[in-house]
Computed example of a mutant assay.
Amino acid sequence: MIHTLRRLAAGLLVLAFVSAVTGADTVSELLPPPAAGQVRVVALGDSVTSGSNCDCAAFPQLYGDLLHNRSAVPVTVDNQGVAGLDSTGLLQELDQRNSPVEQATKAANVVLLTIGANDFGDHHDDVTSGQCTGDCVSDEYEQLTANLGRILSRVHDLRGNLPTTILMTGYWNVFKDGDVAKQQYTPSGRIASDQLTIRTNNAIAAAARADDATYVDIYTPFENSTDITALLASDGDHPDSAGHALIARLLLAATPNPLPTSPRQGG
């Protein structure tokens, strides 16, 4: 026991010395870089990412398994999805020094990003009742557009000059869909929700094009499925196991093979 305490004390002294020399504030900043060939995935986003209302593996873990099977290298997945998160909240988490999101993003050479639907939550009733035109969400849309650019810029800042694959998904619907939407929303409200979803997806795709990120279309595969209800949980708002599996496959198909090894070009 005495020898163990002495070794622990010596280790703490070394850690304190290294921290003083390097200016590092956390042990995680002292960790060695990933081993060659290792893939670290961080999933950033809202309740779709976190796997809410589905007693199943969420798409980030399924994607990690598929990527491992394809590449035959170790893949670790850090799911940082948070139910209810909007783009402003994600940007704040990325900007918070030594937050779990910041640290996980620094360490990840693959970043999955699903964000934006909750930016319009305050107008849910207006949209789904058909009372809302595009003007009622214009401020939120403008803020989302700006935040997406800032989020991508922050990811690159955290990654430094390291090669990073960023995959940005859109949404099949920013609100509910399938049978639940038919029961709860007016016909004009379903149209308005669909139009807002397309507009949101266009903003996400534009942000990806302006960066070196990849936009992954979720809308078309979901909406063109034989029965979108079969891809959704009972709340009509989140994917079920089949929906998460579909998202994972779409992400894998959009992932470069092999992953890029060259530093990011451009600012």
Rank of each mutant, 00 (worst) to 15 (best):
residue 241 S to M: 07
residue 5 L to G: 06
residue 174 V to E: 00
residue 239 P to I: 00
residue 26 T to A: 15
residue 170 G to M: 00
residue 205 A to T: 02
residue 66 L to N: 07
residue 43 A to K: 08
residue 73 V to Y: 03
residue 123 H to R: 15
residue 70 R to Q: 15
residue 210 A to G: 08
residue 12 L to S: 14
residue 89 G to Q: 15
residue 221 P to D: 03
residue 246 L to M: 14
residue 205 A to Y: 00
residue 250 L to A: 09
residue 80 Q to E: 09
residue 146 A to W: 01
residue 109 N to E: 13
residue 175 F to S: 04
residue 76 T to K: 15
residue 21 V to K: 11
residue 230 A to P: 02
residue 69 N to M: 10
residue 208 A to W: 01
residue 177 D to N: 09
residue 119 D to L: 06
residue 51 G to L: 12
residue 252 L to C: 09
residue 185 Y to V: 05
residue 123 H to S: 13
residue 182 K to D: 12
residue 228 I to K: 03
residue 123 H to Y: 14
residue 106 K to S: 07
residue 115 I to E: 11
residue 112 L to F: 12
residue 113 L to I: 02
residue 16 A to H: 03
residue 154 R to Q: 11
residue 41 V to K: 05
residue 23 G to K: 01
residue 139 D to Y: 15
residue 77 V to W: 06
residue 68 H to Q: 14
residue 227 D to W: 06
residue 144 L to C: 04
residue 117 A to S: 10
residue 180 V to L: 09
residue 200 T to Y: 03
residue 152 L to G: 10
residue 196 L to A: 06
residue 92 Q to M: 14
residue 213 A to K: 10
residue 65 D to L: 13
residue 253 A to E: 13
residue 219 Y to F: 08
residue 177 D to S: 09
residue 184 Q to L: 11
residue 263 P to Q: 04
residue 49 T to Y: 06
residue 225 S to N: 11
residue 183 Q to K: 13
residue 126 D to Q: 14
residue 104 A to N: 12
residue 38 Q to Y: 13
residue 229 T to N: 09
residue 14 V to W: 07
residue 9 A to V: 13
residue 208 A to I: 04
residue 37 G to E: 05
residue 223 E to V: 09
residue 184 Q to C: 06
residue 70 R to D: 13
residue 215 Y to G: 09
residue 108 A to C: 06
residue 263 P to W: 05
residue 61 Q to D: 12
residue 54 C to Q: 02
residue 235 D to V: 02
residue 128 T to Y: 03
residue 107 A to R: 15
residue 28 S to K: 05
residue 103 Q to S: 12
residue 184 Q to W: 04
residue 98 N to L: 10
residue 30 L to C: 07
residue 203 A to S: 08
residue 240 D to E: 04
residue 183 Q to S: 10
residue 82 V to K: 14
residue 158 L to N: 04
residue 267 G to T: 08
residue 15 L to S: 05
residue 227 D to H: 08
residue 259 L to Q: 10
residue 104 A to D: 07
